[in-house]
Amino acid sequence: MEDIGYKIFGAFLTTVLAFVVGMFYGGFRRKIIARIQNRVGPPVYQNFLDVMKLLSKKTAVHHGIMQQLAPLWLITMSIVTLMFIPVLKDGLFFTNLNFSGDIIFLLYMMVFGSLGMALGAGQTGNPNSAIGVTRGLIQMVGFEIPWIMALVALMVQYKTTSVTGLLDIQSQSGTWMMFSSPFAFIAALLAMPGMFRYSPFDIVGAPAELASGPVSEFGGKYLSLMMTSGSIFAFVKLTLIVDLFLGGASNLIELVIKTFILYMYPVLWGAISPRFRTEQAVKYFWGWPLFFGVIALAFATF
């Protein structure tokens, strides 16, 4: 009985942690981009204010049940994925359900939210949404292939599909997977900016040409839920990569340092790049990332 109590409390704590850290990372991102552009920039806690403001909106127009469900779908996906990822290697609160799910399940879950979003955006009837969804799915086809190849390489090489199993192997051997299977790491790293959808891969929500794409009809509380889910999901992705390649983290400070350094890579790349067109993005993902993915698979098999 006590165990379940700890589990529930731990799940709650993990969600709050992911939300707060993800939000602050978003704030740092805005601040860093502002400093790169020689501006002062908004305060670091700006994203919290945005979410609070959006929640305090009096009205939120919707076009039907699917549009109402889409943000819920997104945030459910983010939290469920978070539950199946070991945030810390061991400990009472942050391990959650990591023994019950494996990498293949996670790969499914991470796509699930985007599909829900596509359905919701489809119901709004906005032409920009439809174009955004199309672009998003094309981009997903682009980055998923090298990303899945990298993960499959890991699974084949170490003969386990469990994230915890991979963590144990890393702590036993004492080397991180980024050194023991470098090609998989390179492929995952090159595919990672596509998952974050920052510039140059912000072709989905391009504000200047698509009026923020799938999000364009979502206002008020729907938008706030989507922002929340976005920050949780950013934390999820960072934690997953840290767990798989960077040896996980044994305490929160180590986790924050590792994820922040990893986070800086798409952010800084984005700060200095203009936007790709859709076919350029796909061309990029099916170029070097795919090449390294194939090498990683070969490396893992032989």
Partner: peptide, 18 residues
Amino acid sequence: SRYDAERFGIRGAATPRQ
């Protein structure tokens, strides 16, 4: 960059809904 309204939390929105 020159006048930087973002430091007041002012940010462009793409659509009227937001």
